[in-house]
Structures are given as structure tokens and as C-alpha cells.
Simulated scan of single mutants.
Amino acid sequence: MTETLRARFEDGSYPADLGVQIEAADEAESRLVLPFDERNTMFGLVHGGALASLVPIAAHAIAREPARAVAPPLRTVSMHVGYVRAARKAVTVETRAVRRVRELGFFEALIRDADGNAVAHASSTVSEAGSAPADAPPLADLPAGGPAFVAPADEAASGVAGAIRAAMAGSPFLSRRQLRLLGMRREAIEMAMAAAAANLDGGGAMHEGAVLALIDAAGATCPWTAVPPSPGASGATIALSAQLLGALPGDELVARAVVRARDARICWTDVTVAGGASGIVHAFGTVVYRFSEKNGS
């Protein structure tokens, strides 16, 4: 493990804000630890966005070792994470390189808690071809079929928005991401993430992990616009998929989430992430969310 690699976890950027510690890394595998710290939690559990963040962080640690040293910035092209258990303790992510072909690296990861229980499993594809901006279209308006986004003003919408804002404010992890609820309607939500220092990489751009956290937050919040929160109601993300489109900006990002399908227990939400000022799309994601048995449908 190089000192340069270790320094990346101490430079004040997003991985450092999470407190990620690197235990081992070479050209074949890496092992990282995320401490159980209040700043990474929501409702006393490690936030799903923090767990998803470990996937690109760990894969990049392998790709950057001397045997595969590259000059251009690495970028995650695609990833998928499945959550199998809530984490109430520190977690370890063990990642291995499955294959490398041309500029692409394929990785798989297993996240376990301090007792050795599986928490999540993931796969990712990383490009070593650099971070040229992708030719992505501006963020389109929501499809027809519902009222426009509201601030919101009516009593029912305000109640849901208030509960969402309270949940976001009550999560140390989301509070550190400086998220804001911009608007909502039934089965749709718009959320912004500030370009705060704790959300950036060492080069001043939004960190991929922070983008994944935004996708998770928007995708897991959106279902509650269809099933308003009630006392004792709960749920959890059971899967997250994401595609990152080239270089990320160093400016505010906006996520727009739309419920695509749901049944009594599971909700499938698509999320699009774009630059707050430019409107250029930088990432797509899908979040699969499961309601607890106490929730109505």
C-alpha cells in the first residue's frame, strides 16, 4: 500500500469525512473499514448511502496501486449494491478485482459488520480512461401524469414535506451532506446536495460516493410521498443501482426521483442526478425500497 493511497483517506475529502480507514490494498484486492460513528448514521443505523459509498472507494483503492497506476482520474461507470442486513456496528468492505480488460476493471465486494455478518454485496465497473465529460442531455421535466412540483403549500403536502425534512435533519449522515428538499408531488421528489467540502474528492469535484448517497436519499425518500409516514412506519433500501456519466462537477447537484412501480411492500424508484445550475445529467440510479409491515399501502 502506497503512502499516496493512504493520504487520500486523510485529505479532508468525502472518504476522510466518513472516517474510512484502509487496512490493505494491492493490485488484486483491498480491505477498508468504516467505523460506527454517529456522523454516518440515520436512526442509529449506518446509512445506506454511506455503505454504497464504500463500493467505489474500495475499488479505486485497488485500481490505483502501483501495478495498475494510471495518470487519468478513475471513474465508476456502473455499480449495483444489494443490502441484506442493517449495520449497527463498524463494517469492513473486502473487494477483489474479477477481471481487467483494456481500460475497464470489474470488481466485486462484500460488506460485513464487526461480527462477520453480511451487510451488503456489490459489483462495480471502473474506467481508467479518464473523466472526459459525457455527452448527456439536460435534465428533462417529469413525465406527464401528475401535478407540478410544489414547495409545498397545502396542508397535506406540507405535513409530508415536514416529516421528510425532519427525518433528513435528524440523520447525522444526511445533515453532513447538506441536503435540501426542493419540491415534491405524489410519487415524485426533487432534492439538492450542496458542494460542501465534505462531499468533494481531492480534486474539488463531487465525490462518487456523495452522488451515490444523494441517489439513495432521494430514492428512499420518494416512496413516502405515495405512502405518507405514520407513527411506527419504517422501511429500508434493499438494492441500489447507479450509472455515473463521465466527470462530475464541483457544483451543487439536484436529484429528481420518480416512483416507477410499487406494490404493498416494495417500491421501485428511478433517480436522475443533474447539475443544479447547468441541468446537465451526471448520473442515473434505481432504488428498490421495502416498506415495513406497519405501513399502509
Score class of each variant (00 low, 15 high):
3 E>M: 08
5 L>S: 05
12 G>S: 06
14 Y>K: 01
18 L>F: 06
21 Q>V: 08
22 I>Q: 04
28 A>N: 10
29 E>A: 11
29 E>L: 03
31 R>W: 07
33 V>R: 14
34 L>G: 05
36 F>P: 03
43 F>V: 00
45 L>H: 10
46 V>A: 04
50 A>N: 02
52 A>S: 14
53 S>N: 03
55 V>Y: 00
62 I>L: 05
63 A>E: 13
64 R>F: 06
67 A>T: 00
67 A>R: 10
70 V>Q: 15
72 P>A: 08
76 T>Y: 02
77 V>Y: 09
78 S>A: 15
81 V>D: 04
85 R>L: 10
88 R>Q: 12
91 V>K: 14
94 E>Q: 15
94 E>R: 15
95 T>R: 11
96 R>P: 15
99 R>E: 14
100 R>I: 03
103 E>I: 14
103 E>T: 15
107 F>W: 13
108 E>I: 11
113 D>G: 12
114 A>Q: 15
114 A>K: 13
114 A>N: 10
117 N>S: 12
117 N>R: 15
120 A>H: 10
120 A>I: 12
122 A>Q: 09
124 S>Q: 10
128 E>N: 11
131 S>W: 04
136 A>N: 09
143 P>F: 10
147 P>K: 09
150 V>R: 15
150 V>G: 14
151 A>K: 09
152 P>Q: 07
155 E>Y: 02
159 G>W: 01
164 I>E: 08
164 I>D: 09
165 R>D: 11
166 A>H: 11
169 A>I: 00
170 G>Y: 05
170 G>V: 04
172 P>R: 01
173 F>M: 02
176 R>F: 01
183 G>W: 06
183 G>R: 09
184 M>L: 15
187 E>M: 07
194 A>K: 06
195 A>R: 00
209 G>L: 09
211 V>E: 04
212 L>Q: 04
213 A>M: 03
213 A>Y: 01
215 I>G: 04
217 A>C: 03
218 A>M: 02
223 P>A: 03
226 A>L: 12
227 V>F: 10
230 S>I: 09
236 A>C: 08
239 A>V: 00
242 A>V: 03
246 G>W: 06
246 G>I: 14
247 A>Q: 09
256 R>S: 06
257 A>F: 02
259 V>Y: 01
261 A>S: 12
263 D>W: 06
265 R>W: 10
268 W>D: 07
269 T>V: 15
270 D>K: 09
273 V>M: 08
274 A>Y: 06
274 A>S: 13
276 G>H: 05
279 G>Q: 07
283 A>E: 04
284 F>T: 09
286 T>Y: 00
289 Y>S: 05
290 R>M: 15
293 E>T: 13
296 G>T: 02
